[in-house]
């Protein structure tokens, strides 16, 4: 018999059993603690509002849940966007906070699945997105088109790798009634589609920020072009006749 179960990326309570939930809660706390240490250096008066805005933006885009197949709802993750704009440490914290507030206030994603959700989206996703962006950084520094291509690829990798984290957790603590291959196939396939949407939104957003305020893009830090000095004829005031 062909078994095809499809599951939403954002896990609810009861999808993963209690021991695995507890293990991944530990992984999430350890990961966020590491991010906290790294973030202390990155967060100052100028980056604090950026971090808040990235978190709010990710929050708003994660609210757009779109059903794709029966029983499957996917949404944008925002990990690559956060990592490229505010760096991996603050980025992981931003996504983690979004997930925690969603679980506490908006009942989106289960409270006990929070550890697993944070591991997938805030730790694995941000790390994969930032790693990809760093590998392609020479291309990103070349110009706006290059930067947007890098953003697209990083966001795509972020989405697909984060969904692989879900498959790992389902393999460890999910219901044994479903064949893992079918779950993995449908989750990965679905997240390739979501990854394209995520890539487009990330590229558009970072492209606009880089055009207006390149100093705010963490990925481009230290790569800004030197100030260009141009010679121009000096205007001389005319004698007033009045």
């Amino acid at each position: 018999m062909v078994v095809s179960a499809s599951t939403a990326m954002h896990m609810s309570d009861g999808l993963i059993n209690a021991p695995v939930s507890v293990i991944f809660a530990g992984v999430a706390v350890a990961g966020l603690a590491a991010a906290l240490v790294g973030a202390r250096r990155d967060l100052d008066d100028r980056t604090a509002p950026m971090a808040g805005l990235v978190a709010a933006f990710v929050f708003a885009t994660q609210m757009l849940n779109f059903p794709i197949l029966p029983g499957v709802s996917g949404h944008l993750l925002g990990g690559a966007l956060a990592a490229i704009l505010v760096g991996p440490w603050v980025g992981a914290l931003c996504v983690g906070i979004v997930l925690a507030v969603q679980a506490l206030v908006f009942a989106d994603g289960g409270l006990t699945a929070l550890g697993a959700n944070v591991t997938n989206m805030a730790l694995i996703g941000v790390a994969a997105g930032f790693g990809t962006a760093m590998l392609l950084r020479p291309l990103a520094a070349r110009g706006r088109t290059g930067l947007m291509i890098v953003c697209f690829v990083a966001a795509f990798v972020n989405t697909v790798v984060a969904s692989a984290g879900f498959i790992l957790q389902f393999a460890l603590g999910g219901d044994a009634a479903f064949s893992l291959g079918a779950v993995a196939g449908s989750v990965l396939g679905l997240h390739c589609l979501i990854g394209i949407g995520e890539g487009v939104i990330t590229a558009l957003t970072v492209g606009a920020v880089a055009a207006a305020r390149p100093d705010l893009v963490h990925l481009l830090r230290g790569r800004s072009a030197p100030l260009e000095l141009r010679d121009a004829p000096v205007a001389t005031p005319k004698e007033s006749t009045a």
């Binding site: 604090a48 805005l53 978190a55 709010a56 929050f59 708003a60 914290l93 906070i97 507030v101």
Partner: peptide, 19 residues
């Protein structure tokens, strides 16, 4: 930690700014 409450407060405040 203060970093977390800072980001969370700004996030809740900025949701209204974005809307």
């Amino acid at each position: 930690p203060a970093v977390i409450t800072t980001i969370a407060t700004l996030m809740l405040r900025y949701l209204e700014v974005i809307a």
